[in-house]
Design a protein around this nucleic acid. Structure first.
Lengths: 214, 214
DNA sequence: GGTGCGTTAAAAGTATACTATTTGAATCCG
DNA sequence: CGGATTCAAATAGTATACTTTTAACGCACC
């Protein structure tokens, strides 16, 4: 028996691919193609895709589903949202985090630190670190709101990481955040996260100005 | 030709019924019944219902769709989110609002003020007021995040409005907010909204304590 | 009278087929 | 050669039929 429905399995599968950045911006996700690939009918695929739309991961075009158009304006909007939500969120995490959370964070941080010139390795570590603390947010409504735009966050980070300055800022930000988590210091975590987001936005803007980002 | 799809029409129709409080908590919304009533097939109805689920208006049970189980914990979580997002949002609205926005707000406020003992009239005015300023939020990502839990906000307000104290607090809060909007004073709007949310939560807690709310 | 099991009906979930819409391209005309 | 018009292919949207799951009811047995 299927423990979960096709729709949910497909939704989760697509979402993880989206979060991992495996879907290129110009790619078009079409229900019948995915259905054929997975051996099911269009319906559960279509429903999964539409759910991803209402969760902000995808956009419905007249010619298939695609990544939302990440214009600089929209990215700026997300940075505003991040400043409003994430500092408060990590303050709670600093209080509630378990030892297992800390261990996982340390592993993710180690991967980012040891990545060398490898961009994808660094990105994977940073993404894992983020996923861990987001998962640890107790307030489910808050967590869901943060997760809704997490795909965009990953995309933007991926776009900026070729810049050594941005990468250094990200790494030191993660390290400072981890320290606050380990110390259980909510205020410090809140402060570090706010700075971290400001730095990220500055990196993004610099990337735009220097033409590193399309 | 149909300008909009059945799915969207049904979604909007159901949402307005939900917002008006026409769906009782123990009621079950079943796709094939609604489909028969509206003369369409199950599919667009099913998709509309599922979209309402991911927007927080409904919950999917194994025996039809129903109002979400608004546990006090979940409601508390939404209040946290509201405190994080809405003060900042209304500050922007106070700067950007048009004359048309102000006129619509005033009309909504007048409806709430003149509602007398009528609960639904007051609720409709308060809801209209909220919808107007939410629509006026420039930051689309922020607006969407706020809209995602607006259904829950309406439900909670509807549950508390039988309490005269809660109703008075709501009305004076709306009036103060409107003043700030009219003056274009972002800081004042931010402050009024924060107080408004605190008052709303206090009303809700009092309703819980006195058994007014299930 | 309570508890456990089996039956059954209702509703979710899925598959398939058909229709409508949209876009890109090809063709035709100026 | 350029632009408009029409046509075809791809995809969204809807309808209908079938399958699976689940909970509610009844029955028997304790």
């Amino acid at each position: 028996m299927t423990r979960t429905s096709h729709r949910i399995r497909i939704h989760d599968s697509l979402r993880s691919r989206l979060i991992r950045g495996e879907i290129a911006p110009q790619m078009r996700l079409v229900d019948h193609a995915i259905a054929a690939e997975m051996g099911v009918s269009r319906m559960p695929v279509r429903e999964a895709l539409m759910q991803l739309v209402s969760e902000g991961y995808l956009e419905s075009t007249s010619r298939g589903f695609a990544l939302p158009n990440l214009t600089p304006d929209r990215i700026a909007e997300v940075f505003v949202l991040r400043r409003l939500l994430e500092p408060h969120a990590v303050a709670g995490v600093a209080r509630d985090r378990t030892e297992a959370d800390l261990a996982a964070m340390q592993a993710a941080l180690a991967e980012a630190e040891g990545a060398g010139p490898d961009v994808t390795g660094f990105h994977r570590g940073a993404e894992a670190f983020r996923n861990i603390w987001v998962q640890a947010v107790r307030n489910g409504e808050l967590r869901q709101s943060i997760q809704r735009y997490s795909g965009q966050v990953q995309s933007v980070r991926f776009a900026t990481l070729t810049d050594p300055l941005a990468r250094a800022a990200t790494l030191s930000g993660l390290q400072a955040l981890f320290k606050a988590f380990r110390a259980g210091d909510g205020l410090a975590a809140q402060d570090r996260m706010l700075r971290f987001i400001y730095d990220a936005e500055e990196s993004y803007r610099r990337g735009l100005a220097t033409g590193l980002i399309a």
